[in-house]
Amino acid sequence: MTEYKLVVVGAGGVGKSALTIQLIQNHFVDEYDPTIEDSYRKQVVIDGETCLLDILDTAGQEEYSAMRDQYMRTGEGFLCVFAINNTKSFEDIHHYREQIKRVKDSEDVPMVLVGNKCDLPSRTVDTKQAQDLARSYGIPFIETSAKTRQGVDDAFYTLVREIRKHKEKMSKDGKKKKKKSKTKCVIM
């Protein structure tokens, strides 16, 4: 069974824990209790493949930012979460993405942009803004509501699919490099 290491990042209060708990335990946590770091595991079937999701729910508070490099190193894919009623959390996505790329030393890291709290009427981040940002990053965008469960499975499952595509691409690139290195030079 394939294991996928997913990391949920975003500013404090955007609903990272609520999304994760909704996926794992099928219930909505409405009281806000700032996370330092929590880890969850769940076995699911995605596109006919049974897999184990190892999900790291991270601290959004700035005082825990020193811990970010460590979990970013171990993560295979990242859910970059903002709240649709919090423009600052949307603007912060850029910083999370840049930090992930720096730590992973790669421009090509599996990510999904997630606009959470889409059940709320007080939207300050337009869907088109988020779609445009995701398009500019070359990553999928999904709106979710941890409260109603809308888009929750889709967000995590899409990230797994992005990781699969990335692994497939990397193995193809690896095979191309191996083929090239088999060419021999004969000096007579």
Score class of each variant (00 low, 15 high):
I139V: 08
D173W: 12
F156G: 02
D132N: 06
E162P: 15
K128Q: 07
K184I: 00
E63I: 06
C51V: 12
K101L: 15
R68N: 02
V29R: 06
L56K: 02
N86C: 09
Y64F: 08
D92G: 08
G12K: 04
R102P: 02
K165M: 04
L6F: 06
K178Q: 10
V109L: 05
Q129E: 04
D38N: 00
V44C: 10
F156T: 09
R68L: 03
I46C: 10
K167V: 08
Q129G: 14
R73L: 10
I139T: 12
E37Y: 05
K180V: 15
S39W: 02
I139F: 05
Y4T: 08
T74E: 13
G60S: 03
V109Q: 02
K177S: 05
K167Y: 06
T2C: 09
E168L: 07
K184C: 15
L159P: 01
Y32S: 01
M111P: 01
I46D: 14
E31T: 14
Q22A: 08
D119N: 12
I142T: 09
A66P: 04
V125R: 08
I142P: 07
A18H: 02
D69E: 13
L23Y: 13
D47C: 11
F141N: 10
I46P: 11
G151T: 09
Q61Y: 04
F156S: 03
D30R: 13
D38G: 00
N86L: 03
N26L: 05
Q129V: 08
K184M: 02
K167W: 11
P34M: 03
E3V: 10
T127Y: 08
R73S: 09
V8C: 06
P34E: 03
E37G: 02
Y4L: 12
Q25Y: 12
H27Q: 11
V81C: 07
K16W: 01
Q43I: 06
G10H: 02
E37M: 02
V103C: 15
T58Y: 00
D38F: 00
I24Y: 01
D69T: 12
K128Y: 06
A134W: 06
C185A: 13
S65D: 05
V14C: 09
T2I: 11
S122M: 10
F90C: 03
M188L: 05
S181C: 12
Q129T: 12
D108Q: 07
T20V: 08
E3R: 11
I84V: 10
T124H: 08
A18L: 00
N26V: 04
T50G: 08
P34I: 03
A59H: 00
K182W: 03
Q131S: 08
V45K: 07
L52D: 09
A130E: 08
R135T: 09
R123M: 11
S65G: 08
V7P: 02
N86K: 08
V186D: 15
